[in-house]
């Protein structure tokens, strides 16, 4: 089979998959590029959608990520799922309120893997995953400040204030750097 025929065949399989997924997940499935699909859902549907996706063959939870949209006042939580049977990546996106960052945990579906990914997001972004049995700190040692990966956390200022001494000749250079 030539490369072009192969591409055409893949394209028709892809279209069928998109149609199928749209129907079963009850939402519009968007096509980004070859083997990359995404959907956007309400935060309260997350457990239901993830378990449906799991049953449809998206068995591998690659990772969970949070994007902090400061201007919009929202956190976007993204779940990247890979399917070993369809060879496609499905990204599930959902937006939660930045002031009240609470979402249900999907650890009932992926167990320890989801639990650890959520722990990381909880520590670095402060998102609370309801139903996760273990949201203890992961990387940071004795950290009591705000979640450090938030966009409004100015780590340069923090480091200057807490770690460097302006009167120390070897460290004063950090205070001269323009923002």
């Amino acid at each position: 089979m030539s490369r072009k025929d192969k591409q055409n065949k893949n394209k028709s399989i892809e279209e069928k998959l998109i149609k199928d997924l749209s129907l079963k997940l009850d939402t519009t499935v968007h096509y980004q590029k070859e083997r990359r699909l995404w959907i956007s859902i309400n935060p309260d549907q997350i457990v239901e959608t993830c378990s449906k996706a799991y049953e449809l063959g998206f068995e591998h939870l690659s990772t969970i990520s949070v994007t902090d949209w400061l201007d919009e006042g929202k956190h976007e939580v993204t779940y990247h799922l890979w399917s070993y049977s369809h060879n496609h990546l499905l990204t599930i996106k959902t937006k939660i309120d930045r002031k009240k960052p609470i979402i249900s945990s999907i650890s009932s579906i992926w167990g320890g893997n989801a639990e650890t990914c959520e722990r990381e997001c909880h520590e670095l972004f402060g998102v609370k995953f309801e139903g996760n049995p273990n949201l203890t700190p992961l990387f940071l040692e004795d950290w009591e400040g705000p979640p450090p990966f938030l966009k409004d956390f100015n780590w340069r200022e923090f480091v200057k204030k807490d770690m460097y001494d302006q009167n120390n000749p070897r460290e004063k250079v950090y205070f001269e750097v323009k923002k």
């Binding site: 690659s62 070993y84 167990g111 893997n113």
Partner: peptide, 9 residues
């Protein structure tokens, strides 16, 4: 089964 569930690669 465990390998897939735990996200092994």
């Amino acid at each position: 089964r465990e390998a897939i569930k735990f996200g092994a690669t």
